[in-house]
């Protein structure tokens, strides 16, 4: 069964993305803080990790390396954030984020991209 991890410090966005991606054959896990995220990534592996907001990656704690320790896919790392600036987006992509989706978000588009990633 494919497993997707959603990280969001705000419950509403986690519920939004959970509802968008809910499907038979897909297991969804939600982390609300870095400590919870650390425990969940240690215990099992995921096909896709969706992070809401750039705050986690800007802490300087090397989260991208922690999520992908051997620099091999999976997991695919998707970032959903409000920042539209070219420097921010390019910076995140260069650091290793696979998809950067700006808010406002199209629910159908997110779902299509995640399903495509799972199908590959």
């Amino acid at each position: 069964m494919a497993c997707i991890l959603i990280y969001s410090e705000e419950g509403l966005w986690a519920t939004l993305i959970e509802t968008i991606l809910s499907e038979q054959g897909i297991e969804l896990a939600v982390a609300r803080n870095p400590e919870q995220l650390r425990r969940m990534t240690v215990s099992r592996s995921y096909e896709v990790v969706i992070i809401v907001g750039v705050g986690l990656l800007r802490r300087g704690e090397g989260w991208l390396l922690r999520l992908r320790p051997y620099r091999l896919r999976p997991p695919e790392i998707y970032l959903v954030a409000w920042q539209h600036g070219e420097q921010t987006v390019l910076g995140m992509l260069e650091c290793g984020v696979d998809q950067y989706m700006t808010l406002p978000l199209h629910p159908g588009r997110l779902r299509a991209k995640v399903m495509q990633a799972l199908a590959e």
Partner: peptide, 19 residues
Amino acid sequence: QQRGLDEVARRVVARWMAR
């Protein structure tokens, strides 16, 4: 309150997604 907010999100988005 949080359960209520989550439920709103779930149902409204579910309708949007035609689940």
